[in-house]
């Protein structure tokens, strides 16, 4: 009996191999090899490409600790990731709820299209169009002053809120999509059952809907938090001088300073920190769900 099962699963793997191979081959070539090269670089004194002499060192990693700037920037980036994720929940979850539970048919399709529309436009174009909106004398400033009786000055450009706005706009569709999927799977009769037992809409939301959609919230949060912590485009363009974060520093090492080994080391420290955070958070979130 046990032997039969083993044979069964082995032949299953053999027949599945042609289906698995392309994806794993691609992952090996496209991710594993460059990443290995980066690990290698992060322990070097100099980039070997320039022909200079190089040796192995741990200096790139110790630089993170010896210079207070890097941990400070990492903390700022983690805070940015947390705030953007929270705003994405605040903005995205209600939208996902309405899409999944209130709208039907045509209107749902139309609103859904609006949610995924940002994916179809270029990221850089999106950010620069925010710059048009947020700067002094920009679209938001002009529009508000046209409506309000008092004169106010809206200049959000090159500020922390501008970075948040840009990042939330870029990443909120992930939250809407993951929450939509879990919310849609919740049977409407569960909500009706809760109401029939005397629970208000808010109590039903707190005790039934949110716990059951927790997997979507967690997946959305992970999809948003990780790239936001390492983001550099939105902070640089919308944040200006205030937009110096861990991600922009890494980008500088690669693009401006050409200190690839330090950039690589900083990247892996970020990766490690994010992995630790996810590892610590996942059992807590799973228990909450």
């Amino acid at each position: 009996m046990a032997g039969q099962v083993a044979i069964g699963s082995r032949s299953g793997l053999r027949s599945a191999l042609p289906l698995l191979l392309p994806a794993y081959l691609w992952l090996t070539v496209a991710i594993f090899l460059p990443l290995s090269a980066m690990v290698f670089f992060s322990f070097m004194t100099e980039l070997p490409l320039s022909g200079k002499a190089w040796s192995f060192t741990l200096d790139n990693y110790t630089a993170f600790l010896s210079q207070g700037l890097y941990p400070t920037l990492l903390l700022a980036s983690l805070r940015l990731g947390l705030e953007v994720t929270l705003w994405c929940v605040v903005v995205g979850y209600p939208a996902a709820y309405v899409l999944a539970k209130v709208l039907k048919g045509r209107s749902r399709e139309a609103i859904f299209l609006l949610v995924i529309l940002p994916f179809w436009s270029n990221g850089l174009v999106r950010i620069f169009s925010w710059a048009m909106v947020l700067r002094e004398g920009g679209i938001l400033d002009t529009a508000l002053n046209a409506v309000l009786p008092i004169k106010i000055n809206i200049d959000l450009m090159y500020s922390y809120p501008a970075v948040i706005i840009g990042l939330v706009h870029s990443y909120v569709p992930y939250m809407v999509l993951t929450c939509y999927l879990t919310l849609q799977a919740i049977d409407g009769s569960l909500i009706e059952a809760g109401r029939s037992l005397g629970a208000s809409r808010l109590q039903v939301l707190k005790r039934i809907v949110i716990p059951l959609s927790m997997p979507g919230l967690v997946a959305g949060a992970a999809l948003i938090f990780v790239p936001v912590v390492g983001s550099f485009m939105e902070p640089r363009i919308l944040g200006g001088r205030t937009g110096t974060f861990y991600g922009t520093v890494i980008e500088d090492q690669f693009v401006a300073v050409f200190n690839w080994p330090l950039g690589a080391a900083l990247s892996f420290i970020l990766l490690a920190v994010v992995l630790v955070i996810l590892a610590v958070a996942s059992p807590i979130l799973r228990r909450a769900a």
Partner: peptide, 12 residues
Amino acid sequence: GMVFQNYALFPN
């Protein structure tokens, strides 16, 4: 008190 066709028990 309502009993639903699919029981509608809270799975969580």
